[in-house]
Design a protein around this nucleic acid. Structure first.
Lengths: 191, 191
DNA sequence: GTCGATGTTCACCGATCAGTATACTTGAGG
DNA sequence: CCTCAAGTATACTGATCGGTGAACATCGAC
């Protein structure tokens, strides 16, 4: 049911409204009635499609995750240089930030949903694990030594830039520069 | 009213209960009745002391901020070497993380309280601004060139480590190492 | 000995919450 | 023509939410 391919047109509009409202105003603070209203759909239809608010939240995070991964993949594939590709997620972050001024939706979800059994937590944690292994793959492909350690550093930088986004501190450019220098400083071995 | 010095004994117990419950379970998810119960205080007393939930939230964040700043200051002052002192907030973070497995309370609060006029947002933003200028002061005192740029990098690293804390990724040690190398790599000028 | 601050007890308010019941409409496919 | 799925309209439930009113207890200070 979390698969947007299997959703009806009304279901897709519900997820779109949930995406905007949950992200902008917070998950707990937004009621299902408001989402139904914004998507031009009856509350009954919403429940026929998703069954519960928890599952709607999971669908919201899943859809956002898929959009984010698609953007990152496209940015990576647009890079000719494998060294440049390692920092492609940071370039994607700059694009992403234009419409996401409230920080990371997944970190925010973890903040609001402390229950370890909540299915939405899986989605959020999986996203970070995915990004970490992507950094590692890209580092290895760019012939960096110790790609795992570099990937950890890049992930922390990425999360730092993402979470300071709602703060008026303008940290994005400085972070991208630092990430680039970390990657280039980690020279290929045996030169 | 947010000053813990002016609080009555009952008021202090309320803040202590709010500190635990708001942080562990989220601000919106925890009702005032639950906080009153956990602090052994009547809901009436809670409202006599704080007036509204918003103000209690602000008091909770203020108290947590003061505790955090005191820890950082103590850690900084325990350093003999001014270069080592620049990364003292990261050492403090390691201590802090032992009791804070749910990430940064201030980032979490920003996630839950999207209203720009919310007084609690000021507290959260001010904390990050304070940390940024502390990094800058310490960098300047350690004779680093471009202390402002270094401070930005350190803040992003710090927030990255803090927000990945609830994730099972073990990023803290790697982050502290990277922070140290950034500080030592920024050699004093004119040597 | 009284007075004000601190706190308790407990009932109460209107609003909102997630979720459900029932009956009706619409439109495409066989 | 009929059927079935998708969706609408509306009213409803029980619980919980933040917040209030009013009367009473305790106790140190002047």
């Amino acid at each position: 049911m979390a698969d947007p391919q299997h959703l009806t047109p009304a279901g897709r509009r519900v997820v779109a409204a949930a995406d905007e409202l949950f992200y902008e105003r917070g998950i707990t603070a937004v009621g299902v009635a408001l989402i139904a209203e914004h998507s031009g759909v009856t509350k009954r239809t919403l429940y026929n499609q998703f069954g519960s608010k928890d599952r709607l939240v999971a669908a919201y995070l899943t859809e956002r995750d898929e959009r984010w991964r698609a953007l990152v993949r496209a940015t990576v594939e647009a890079c000719d240089d494998p060294v440049e590709a390692v920092t492609a997620p940071f370039a994607a972050l700059r694009t992403w930030a234009r419409t996401s001024s409230r920080g990371c939706a997944f970190i925010n979800a973890l903040a609001e949903l402390p229950d370890p059994a909540d299915p939405a937590r899986r989605v959020a944690v999986d996203q970070k694990v995915w990004l970490l292994s992507l950094f590692e793959e890209l580092s290895a492909a760019a012939d960096r030594p110790e790609p795992a350690a570099l990937a950890r550093q890049l992930l922390v930088l990425h999360e730092g830039a993402l979470t300071t986004l709602p703060l008026p501190l303008e940290t994005l450019d400085a972070t991208v520069d630092l990430a680039r220098s970390l990657v280039t400083a980690a020279a290929p071995p045996g030169r």
